[in-house]
Design a protein around this nucleic acid. Structure first.
Lengths: 224, 224
DNA sequence: GCAAAAGTGTTAGTGATACACCCATGA
DNA sequence: TCATGGGTGTATCACTAACACTTTTGC
């Protein structure tokens, strides 16, 4: 590929391509990341995000889906490409260019080999995965503000309080309940189910997203 | 890299890594892209963006800078990673994963082998570079609205009319001059030079960006 | 003095923020 | 009946959008 305008070929083929998937989900009111232990090499036993080599006849998206599914049972995930990391020294063992993916799950599913750790207090991670985690969180925060992506972090039906908690948890600040409801209902992306959820107190109305495809709309103002 | 959780290694090493750089600049009131001709292979003589293999000891950013500099003389460019394209069939000859970069130039510099073509009417491009072009334009449009990135498409000093034209050209619609000036001056990112530029009519005040680093601020409202 | 671009202010409307009270339920 | 979270309405403020005229210069 690419227009090689008469440039010699250098040592090329030794660059490997991998994907790394950052699974995020809410758990006990906090944002958690799904991590696995590195099994080999200098970084053995440290936490890292699931991932690995891209196969020769496989798209990047497919590789991300494969590596995610290899660790976490599929459950209506939203997966999107995040950023590509390729510093020569990021893996001490060999040159690996890694395409990072963000995966949003509606639940922190327990799965063998996967540990869900709170994003706010991640331990030391293998390679440059700390950086990847930061980029993933920044992306998530940014996209919540101008897309309907919150659906990916919620069950199919939810209350407005649930939805508000997604925002408050991810953004790390409290939002005014009345204004939040007004804004989010005014967007017209939610359909009331008519049903209610019964808990300890007054039952709450249940909603679902009219569409669960990514949409760009100003969900939050810049200030509040 | 990555936590290879006991997965066998498939045919790995045959995926090559390249960068492709999308150089954009304003020229005669329109946004233009800098393209080169493919020299070899099935796509020979079609237009494509400058790019090529990443060297083994080179970061992705460095590779992008190298391939850009190989075609266009450096001139205070802004370069940022755009997206990574890796469909198996995107280069019919071999499997290439390409990390695309966006490069913003203050001028459409003439250089041997480079043709500047208006983005609105690009011809058929090699590989999937049409897609890359679209992603680049979407990114530029989006970032103009909430960053000070316009500086990259302007000379160091410019008039408010110049700045407004950047926005109007990239966004493809007219903006109200008075409101534009108010908003952009209220942001406090511009410093007046005191000097003026003399043209055919009343001279215009010259400004520069106080900082030419990327900053996130609401430059435009969502509506206007 | 005329054409053309630079420069400026006001008003109306819309959306954001802040805020306080009633409601429905389970215990 | 009370504690708890669910649900609603309003006044203020800030920002946006629409809009017309004066100024300065080159020709």
């Amino acid at each position: 590929m690419t227009a090689c305008a008469g440039t010699p070929r250098h040592a090329d083929a030794t660059v490997a391509v991998a994907v790394d998937v950052v699974p995020l989900a809410l758990y006990e009111g906090r944002l958690h990341a799904g991590l696995v232990r590195v099994e080999r090499g200098d970084e053995r036993s440290r936490f890292a995000f699931p991932g690995g080599r891209v196969r020769e006849n496989e798209s990047l998206d497919a590789a991300a889906a494969r590596w995610l599914a290899g660790h976490l049972p599929d459950s209506g995930v939203h997966v999107e490409q995040l950023y590509t990391f390729g510093e020569p020294g990021r893996d001490p063992a060999s040159r690996v260019v890694s395409v990072a993916y963000l995966a949003l799950l509606s639940r922190a599913i327990a799965a063998p080999g996967v540990e869900w750790l709170p994003c706010a207090t991640l331990p030391r991670l293998a390679y440059d995965h700390r950086t990847i985690a930061r980029v993933a969180l920044d992306r998530l925060r940014a996209k919540l503000a101008y897309t309907n992506l919150a659906w990916a972090l919620l069950d199919r039906t939810f209350t407005l309080a649930d939805l508000q908690q997604v925002y408050e948890t991810v953004l790390g600040r409290a939002l005014d309940r009345r204004n939040f409801r007004k804004r989010v209902l005014a967007l017209g992306l939610l359909s009331p189910l008519g049903a209610t959820r019964h808990g300890a107190h007054r039952p709450a109305q249940l909603f679902r997203f009219t569409t669960r495809r990514p949409i760009t709309v100003g969900v939050l103002s810049e200030r509040e």
